[in-house]
Amino acid sequence: MTALLTTNRYIQSLPKYLTLCEHNYVRLLKLLPRERAIGSVREIKLGHSEFAINIDDNAKYTLDVSIKQLSGMVRGISPLYLTVRLYNDAKVAEIVHHDYHQRIKPSYGYPNPKMHQKDEKYQLNAFLYDWLVACVERGQSTLNWDVNNGLV
């Protein structure tokens, strides 16, 4: 008797994914450096950890930012590193790289050699959503007051 192995391919819910990316876009805009020039950085403290949001590339319709953990690392766990692309025309933001990996596929067959989850891309963007909510609600950042324009 032979057993047939059937694989149910993961099909992502596009409306659910786009809603998540829209929420990420709105929250990430609140955390970006005021100046959107390449190389601009904003540091955020969340609990005992510090993070830097760096503008890597600024094009007409897209903005690439990297989020890097600067302090508060846990031994045995690599520090957070994400590259997020903001699509200004569509008003969505999604992770395009994480932990220095080249590319995240929309879905993975399971099992796979690197043990990615079927919905790895959605899970990473859901993590980004949770992280952004925590930063917006509980994070601390240095305010860059412009004394010359009368703000202080």
Results as ranks from 00 to 15, higher is better:
Ile11Met: 13
Gln117Thr: 14
Lys118Leu: 10
Pro111Leu: 05
Asp64Cys: 10
Leu14Pro: 06
Pro111Arg: 09
Glu43Phe: 07
Asn54Ala: 08
Thr62Arg: 08
Glu137Tyr: 06
Glu120Ile: 07
Glu94Trp: 06
Phe127Cys: 03
Leu29Cys: 14
Asn144Gly: 04
Gln140Cys: 11
Val84Tyr: 02
Arg27Gly: 04
Asp130Lys: 02
Leu63His: 00
Glu50Cys: 11
Asn112His: 05
Cys21Val: 03
Gly47Trp: 08
Thr142Pro: 02
Asp119Phe: 06
Val41Ile: 14
Thr83Met: 13
Pro33His: 05
Tyr87Ser: 14
Gln140Thr: 12
Leu46Ala: 04
Leu32Cys: 04
Thr19Val: 03
His48Phe: 12
Gln12Arg: 15
Ile38Met: 06
Gln102Glu: 13
Ile77Met: 11
Arg138His: 15
Met115Leu: 13
His97Gly: 04
Leu20Thr: 08
Cys135Met: 15
Val26Tyr: 13
Leu29Asn: 14
Pro113Cys: 01
Gln117Glu: 14
Leu132Ile: 03
Leu31Arg: 05
Val133Gln: 08
Tyr122Leu: 12
Glu94Met: 13
Asp56Glu: 15
Ile104Arg: 08
Ile67Asn: 00
Glu137Trp: 05
Tyr108His: 11
Lys45Gln: 15
Ile55Val: 15
Ser78Gln: 12
Asn144Ile: 00
Arg36Ile: 05
Thr142Met: 12
Glu94Ile: 10
Tyr17Gln: 10
Asn112Met: 03
Thr142Val: 15
Ile44Arg: 00
Leu32Lys: 03
Tyr100Val: 02
Val136Ala: 01
Pro33Tyr: 02
Gln69Asn: 09
Arg85Asp: 03
Gly47Val: 12
Ile55Thr: 10
Pro79Met: 00
